[in-house]
Simulated assay, not measured.
Amino acid sequence: MESSTDSTSRALEVRGLSVTFTTRRGPVPAVVDVDLDVARGELVALLGESGSGKSAAARAIMGLSDRNATVTADTLKLGDTDLRTLSEQRHRKLRGTRMSLVFQDALSALNPVLSIGDQLGELFREHRDLSRKAARAAAVDLLGQVGIPAPARRISDYPHQFSGGMRQRILIAMAIALRPELIIADEPTTALDVTVQAQILELLDTLRRDLDMAVLLITHDLGVVSEVADRVMVMYAGRVVEAGSADDLLSRPAHPYTEALLRSVPRADRREGRLHAISGSPPSPANQPAGCPFHPRCEYVVDDCRTTRPPLLASTVNAARFAACHRSEEVGHVAVAG
């Protein structure tokens, strides 16, 4: 899948990324041949159900895959740096300085026995060689940037003294502390209520614009995607099945899976008694069906779907839209009519 993103502005460039886990029952492909670009100042959403391979792809990019995982890629670059050739030590140095990961469970990610000031300050002491006093001042400034009230006073507090939304802001502060080129946010709003979710998304959106950072947002929530994403990539069974601009993809999906996800979202302008539900469950990575992996759950299924896996191809109408479906043009027309 060729991206329209200018190569000179790409913070992240991924081609042919695959992640396979070695298990007692044999190899299990979790991510298969994924292409992905994120430009500076851009927010790209990686969307899909649990088990679709989103987090496995993100951890592979960060160099944090489990020991039983084999990661391969034709291209895996952060700016001009080829991540495939780095030693573990050099990869570790990049994490935090040039790319950062925001976890979904802030309480588990933060050290419960260290104050927030100590945890933030350590980043500046280790990577910027600041004195303890200067590191603390930088940490206070960071807390202010992410909207923590009275940061000079709260810098001495511990994680359990903050609300869930405030802890998530602290994780974002840690992610942006050293001004990385790329932030990967893995389900950063999952455990938060709707109001706090909106605040966290607005914060991520503001920071990436102000600091010209690239953001890869991993989520299963279409509401999250519609609020902040520039582009969307939909994953199913370890592969990208649809990609395009957020406005275009959400208004005119070209893959039955994306269309089904959109129909399952509650809308104020609809008065139906029941929400649409996608029948069945995603296939196990170890036992995927022949042909298109979505065909057992698909309302558009034809014989070709059961035998031939559709490639991810550009739309004949819009070269920036990609879909892996034998009937993508028909799905798009039905979505518009609906």
Rank of each mutant, 00 (worst) to 15 (best):
H326Q: 08
H326Y: 01
L36K: 09
L182A: 11
R167E: 05
T22F: 01
D303W: 01
L114D: 04
A138M: 05
M166Y: 00
L204S: 03
L207D: 05
V194L: 11
A69T: 05
D141Y: 04
I176H: 08
R25M: 12
R10E: 15
T8L: 10
N68K: 11
D193R: 10
R59A: 03
A106G: 14
Q288A: 15
S65C: 10
V234Y: 02
R40Q: 13
A229K: 01
T316D: 07
S156C: 00
P289F: 12
A45R: 00
D248I: 01
Y257A: 14
A246W: 02
L43S: 08
P293F: 04
L12G: 01
V146C: 01
E329D: 14
C325I: 07
S328E: 00
A60M: 02
V196T: 14
A138D: 07
E330F: 00
K93F: 00
L12A: 07
L110W: 05
R169T: 05
L201S: 03
L76F: 08
Q288I: 14
G144R: 02
A177N: 08
Q197S: 08
A60H: 09
I148M: 04
C292N: 09
P159L: 09
I148P: 02
A237N: 08
S264G: 06
H127G: 07
L250D: 09
T81I: 15
A134E: 15
A337E: 13
R309N: 06
V224T: 14
F124I: 06
A268R: 12
D82F: 07
Q119Y: 11
L36H: 05
R95S: 05
V34G: 10
S279E: 13
F124K: 08
K93S: 13
L43A: 10
A260N: 10
S264I: 10
E88M: 10
C292S: 10
P151L: 04
S55C: 13
V232G: 01
S226H: 01
P149R: 12
Q161I: 01
G26W: 13
V113M: 12
M166E: 13
V44Y: 06
L201I: 13
P149G: 04
R327H: 11
D6C: 03
L47N: 04
V102F: 07
A185R: 11
L313W: 02
T81Y: 00
A286H: 10
P282W: 02
H326S: 03
P283E: 14
V102I: 15
E42S: 09
G164E: 06
